[in-house]
Amino acid sequence: MPVATIAGQEIHINDEGYLTEYDEWNEDVGQELAQNIGIDMTDDHWAVIRFLREDYKEKGETATTRRVDKVGGFPTKQQFQLFPKKPGKKMSYIAGLPKPHGCV
């Protein structure tokens, strides 16, 4: 398992670059991950990321875009605006979570 230095910390990641340890993430790490993929974080971005972190803690799996809409209250359209083209993957990457597992 590769180890990367992100925001000055040693972080475990998988072959694709997604974090593998929930507890190694903090918002400084999230900030750097966002920069890596060209996203400037605003309060709106952080609100989505915080929901994903909380939801994962509770459910043990990454919320799909549908769940982020229905449970988190962030409309699909907004998700595509904040995290263009591949919201599901980009959100989970920045949040330090695995890619969503569900189909919908």
């Binding site: 990367a4 694709e16 670059g17 993929i37």
Partner: peptide, 10 residues
């Protein structure tokens, strides 16, 4: 080492 996922944005 840092690995950044390829989101094919280009």
């Amino acid at each position: 080492m840092t690995i950044i996922p390829n989101f094919d944005d280009d």
